[in-house]
Amino acid sequence: MPTFVYMTRCDGCGMCVDICPSDIMHIDTTVRRAYNIEPNMCWECYSCVKACPHQAIDARGYADFAPLGHSLRVLREEEKGTIAWRIKFRNGTEKNFLSPITTKPWGQAIPKLADESEPSPTMRDSQLLFSEPKYIRLDDGDLHTLESNGLTMKEGVYY
């Protein structure tokens, strides 16, 4: 469903313009509000819908295969760490879903690698990546190699 914008709710803040991966949410110069300039390049990804602070964006199923009379609304709350969905069918049936979007306060649990200690020369020459080998198995096990797993690389037809 390509998106559209309700005239009375949009204040032209541009959050949707900033986020749309397809670059199709633009501000109309006359009404100074957002609109979808290229509906046939919309993936209905809902990035703009989730980003709009005024719930001004909605989606209406693609005209070539979706009948009118449905709605799918979403509320994503970063502080609460949840996303809520409400689906309304053409025949009036309603379904609601609530999912977590993160288990940690936003962004804080991601390490700043500039502050990590410098990797040793042996680590640099090894096949290991940051936080390996520990993070591979979370025990003392090492990285898998051809030798450790009893393998060779052979040319030919093997199935």
């Binding site: 993936w43 209905e44 199923g61 449905h70 969905w85 069918f89």
Partner: peptide, 13 residues
């Protein structure tokens, strides 16, 4: 998301 919208639009449960 579009698949959910389509089923809502076409009353596919």
């Amino acid at each position: 998301v579009g698949q959910a919208v389509l089923w809502a639009a076409t009353d596919v449960d």
